[in-house]
Every structure is written in structure tokens, then in C-alpha cells.
Amino acid sequence: CHSECLGNCSQPDDPTKCVACRNFYLDGRCVETCPPPYYHFQDWRCVNFSFCQDLHHKCKNSRRQGCHQYVIHNNKCIPECPSGYTMNSSNLLCTPCLGPCPKVCHLLEGEKTIDSVTSAQELRGCTVINGSLIINIRGGNNLAAELEANLGLIEEISGYLKIRRSYALVSLSFFRKLRLIRGETLEIGNYSFYALDNQNLRQLWDWSKHNLTITQGKLFFHYNPKLCLSEIHKMEEVSGTKGRQERNDIALKTNGDQASCENELLKFSYIRTSFDKILLRWEPYWPPDFRDLLGFMLFYKEAPYQNVTEFDGQDACGSNSWTVVDIDPPLRSNDPKSQNHPGWLMRGLKPWTQYAIFVKTLVTFSDERRTYGAKSDIIYVQTDATNPSVPLDPISVSNSSSQIILKWKPPSDPNGNITHYLVFWERQAEDSELFELDYCLKGLKLPSRTWSPPFESEDSQKHNQSEYEDSAGECCSCPKTDSQILKELEESSFRKTFEDYLHNVVFVPRKT
């Protein structure tokens, strides 16, 4: 048989008469490798580009789960590009990614509803959504962080984005990388972005840091009482949809009607710091009717980097990364020049730590249904340095008659930039024990000054392991946590139920 035959053949030295091919099969003959313009397919066939392209389009058009959109890589027609490569849609070739590779997620039936953290986790790592997304989240724990972890990498949506009755959302900033909504599939009414009845939605994105392009379709905003109209108009300008909307697409009466839409800028007039305090004062603000001013709200939190936005980490279910302080308005003076500047002394802060701070007014709604208010920009203030805590785990070892090696770990709280350490030492008198000992005694162990690591005695271990207080009263049991108490109650309830079950099964009433 021919060298490319495997198993047997019907005619000697003829690659077209093989029972099976050793390498690849091409047009009725066995070959060692697939010549151009053919590609290896499933490690035994040679196919042309049209064959591989037909497989790709067949799966793409069917949208069946589990099928493969075949691509070409290293002269092979394979189910998908290997790690580190992405497909070129024009020629199906796998090309190296520039940075992290995109991950295209194809949605069944063309859309997916995100109504819980669990459903959001199914899209973790996706960068391109081939379909439409509907966000409908009523509640949950730590929602802002969970949504950002699972949806934060999405850069492109081919269909539309719909935010509907998501009472738990305060902001859409968890879509931190969303840059493009194509609108290839539109919501009824030709809408590519749809926001309806979101009672706590206050911000779409921080438009000073976020760009969003909507290729096709219109915007729809109705019944978002805490979303200011200025935020919607800003989205029109940034996304390129200005002029597409009709009169009733953006409701003037049901958007922002319960919001404090600040239209003035508060400026800080005085800032002073110490290692654990920050004193702030800002310019006074009074609405047209000074009785509408209820006070100020001061927001602050630790910020290692200057990239904080107002609604980071917030949701309507209680999660809030900001510390909020309510401040009463100052006494009002008739003389504008003698107006008191409101302020606040922030206490209990960490030394040498940068804080993000902003302040906003708290006002009631005027009778004319106009909203007044003022808010400052987010500023960054760093507390002063102070003395560091003591170095940890000092170790001293003498390696000769004239040297001592000293080692330690950095302090747990540096409280500033540590530039150097101060080492103090003092000579001590020799131990009298060394002169009084009889060095001729056998088995004498000389006193040693070398360091030995501390260890816990058996008594201390027994005390720590004991669940009861000892007789001397030195140790006591740790208080039980809520989960331990709940577990004990469940076990007790189970024992009672099981005992009742045994009584009912074992003891049967005697027939009379």
C-alpha cells in the first residue's frame, strides 16, 4: 500500500485506493498535508475557505447554543480562536489581540433580562453583547459592586439597553466600559436606550469621564423622579442622539420631579488639616426662599486615587461607600458681607490618608415646582503625618564578641513616609551569675543571650482551647457569634421535631 494509506488498500502504491488515510483526505486521495488554498479540518480532512465560511455563517444565523462559528488559524479551520487571539470578521482569520481579548457573548432569543446578581454573573467577562440587555433589578445585597464585577467589562451592545423598574439602582456607572450601543435591534418605538419607572436612579454616568455613542435609535425617559433633566440632556449631547427624540420621548413632568437638581456650584473657602482632623468651610448658599434650606450634607471617604465619582458603590438597598454628615444651616444675616460661612470639623480620621470630599445642599421643593440647590466639586484632601507606631517583631542576635545583629519589621501604621529608623542602645553591667558559677561542674549549661522565638506554653494553649472559665478566673470563653447562636437554635429545633416524629412513629394507638 501507499505510504499515506492506513489499515489496508485495494490497489498497491495508489493513494486513492486506501481504506483510511494516515494524515489527511483531499478529493478522494490521501495526502501528507493540505496544500494551499485548503485548510486542515478536524485533523483528517482538507477543506477550502468557502466550506469553513459556510459553517461560520450557519452557526451565526441559527443562534443555536453550542454550535461553533468556525475560524481560520495556522492553516486550520477550527471552532474558535485560541487564547490571546480574536477573529477578523472580513476573512475569519485569528489575529493577536492588542491588550485583553474581546469576548463576544451571543444571547438566546436576542435579549437577556438581568433581574438578579445570579443572572448578571452569566455575563461575567463579556466585552461584546450580541443582542439586547434588559435591566430589571428590584433589590439585593452589595448590588453596585456585584454588577460592576460582572457587567463592568461590557464595551458594546449590538441591540438596545433597557432599564425598567430597577428600584435598587442609583447610577449606571457599573457599566464602566460601555462605549457603544449599535441599535441594530430596537425596542418598540425605535428606541435604543429605554429608561422607565426607576424610582431611585439619580445618575446615568459621570459624563466628564465617560463617552457613549448610540449609532441608531432614540432615547426614552419616563417616570424617573430623581433623575434630573440636565442629566438626560447631557446624554443626548454626548451620545449623538440630540435631535432624534420626539416631543413625548422625554417626559418633562415625570423626570426629576422629586430630585434636588443642583444648578449652582458650592466653593470651599477654608481648608485646614491635622493628622486626624480636617476643618472645612464653604461659601454660604440661600435659595430664593431661605426657609427652603434644610441644611447641608457632607460626604467623605478614603480615596487612594483621584478618580472618585459621587455615586460609586451606591445602591438604593443601603450600600453606600460614603460617610454622610448632616449639618444645620448657619444663622442668616441681613448683611451679605457678614454672612457666616458654614463648615464642619471632621474628626477621627487616619493620618497621612487622602480623602475625597464634597458637600451639597438639602432643600425642600418650592411652590413653583422649581428645584434649587448647590453642590461642590469633589475635592481631595490629605491629612498630615504623625509619629508612626512601633516597629514590629524586633530580633537581636550576637554573632561574635563585638557585634549584635538587630532586625525588625516595619510598623503596622507608618502614618507617613518613613525615611529612617533611630536605634538606641545602652551598655549593661555583666551578670554576677557568670562569676559565681563553678565551671568545672559536669552538665553545666552556660547562660545564653542568643534570641529564641517566643512560644506559647501548654497552660496558655489549654486556656485558649477551654470553653469555660478556669477556677483562677484568668480566662473566659469568647462570646458566641450570631451565626453560632442561630445554628444552635436550628439544631435544637431539629432535635425537638425529630423526637416528636419518633414518638408518633414508635407509639401507635392500640386498636379498641
Rank of each mutant, 00 (worst) to 15 (best):
V238L: 11
F358K: 14
N263S: 04
D289H: 10
K226H: 15
D367L: 07
G240P: 13
E156G: 07
I405H: 05
D393T: 06
N307Y: 02
W207K: 03
R369M: 11
N340A: 07
L294Q: 06
Q403V: 05
W322I: 02
Q306P: 03
P388N: 01
Y194D: 07
S402N: 15
L186V: 02
N399G: 12
G183P: 02
E146F: 11
K177D: 07
L204K: 01
G139N: 07
E236T: 15
E246K: 15
V363I: 15
V359T: 08
K407G: 07
S401P: 04
G217N: 01
L151V: 05
T383G: 00
I378N: 01
G217E: 00
L107P: 09
R176W: 02
A251S: 06
F296T: 03
P394D: 03
N399C: 15
E146P: 15
L169H: 03
G217F: 00
E187T: 05
Y305V: 12
W286L: 09
E148K: 03
L279R: 09
V170I: 14
D206L: 10
L201D: 00
K234M: 04
E246L: 04
S400G: 08
I395A: 03
V117G: 15
C261H: 02
K350N: 07
S230W: 03
G140H: 15
A120Q: 08
L362R: 15
K242I: 05
L229P: 03
E302R: 06
D257H: 13
T113W: 13
P284M: 13
L143S: 15
S274C: 10
T309H: 08
F358R: 04
Q339C: 10
Y372Q: 02
I379F: 06
T215H: 07
G159K: 01
I114D: 00
H210A: 07
A374S: 09
H341L: 11
A374F: 10
N141D: 05
V128G: 07
E122T: 05
H222P: 00
T185K: 13
D335S: 08
Q382P: 04
A251Q: 12
Q306T: 14
K253N: 08
N200P: 02
Y300M: 15
R244E: 03
L227Q: 02
Q403Y: 10
N387M: 14
L180R: 11
D289M: 06
L161P: 01
R370M: 06
N340K: 14
S116R: 14
E187L: 07
N224K: 01
S119V: 05
L133A: 02
G295P: 06
L180G: 07
S338E: 13
S208W: 07
G217M: 01
P288G: 03
F365Q: 11
K242E: 06
S158H: 01
S401V: 15
K267H: 06
K267A: 08
S321Y: 15
G313S: 04
K103T: 13
S192P: 03
T309R: 12
P388M: 00
L204R: 00
S401T: 08
P394C: 11
E262T: 09
L133M: 08
G240T: 03
D292S: 06
V390R: 12
I378L: 10
D292V: 03
V128I: 08
E187K: 09
Y194S: 11
L345S: 08
Y285L: 05
N141R: 11
L345I: 13
H210V: 06
K360Y: 04
G139L: 14
Y223A: 08
F174A: 11
Y223N: 10
L266I: 09
E148L: 13
L108R: 12
E109W: 11
W352V: 05
N399D: 15
T273G: 15
S239V: 12
G125D: 06
G348P: 09
Q339L: 10
L172I: 15
L212M: 08
D335H: 07
K218V: 12
N255H: 03
C317Y: 11
F358Y: 04
W352S: 09
P336T: 04
S132P: 04
N211Y: 12
L169A: 15
W286G: 14
N248E: 15
L180A: 09
C228R: 03
S208V: 06
I378E: 01
P342K: 05
Y160P: 01
L201S: 01
K209M: 07
C105T: 00
F220W: 08
N248Y: 03
I134D: 12
R165V: 09
K350V: 04
Y300V: 08
Y300Q: 14
T241D: 11
A251H: 14
E237Q: 12
W282E: 00
I157L: 05
L151R: 00
S239T: 14
F220A: 12
N211S: 07
A251N: 13
G373F: 14
N198R: 00
Y355K: 00
E187N: 04
H222S: 10
V359Y: 02
Y300C: 14
L108S: 11
T361W: 03
Y270V: 08
R332L: 05
I327H: 01
I405L: 15
L172W: 00
L123V: 12
L279K: 15
T241W: 09
I163K: 05
H222Q: 09
A316F: 06
A303R: 10
F299V: 12
G189T: 15
A145G: 01
T113P: 13
I357F: 03
E146W: 13
G318P: 08
D257F: 05
Q216F: 15
E246G: 12
L212R: 00
L151H: 01
D197R: 03
S260L: 11
S239E: 04
G125W: 05
D393A: 07
D335V: 13
I154G: 00
V128E: 01
I188D: 15
P284F: 15
K209H: 12
F299A: 15
Q199W: 12
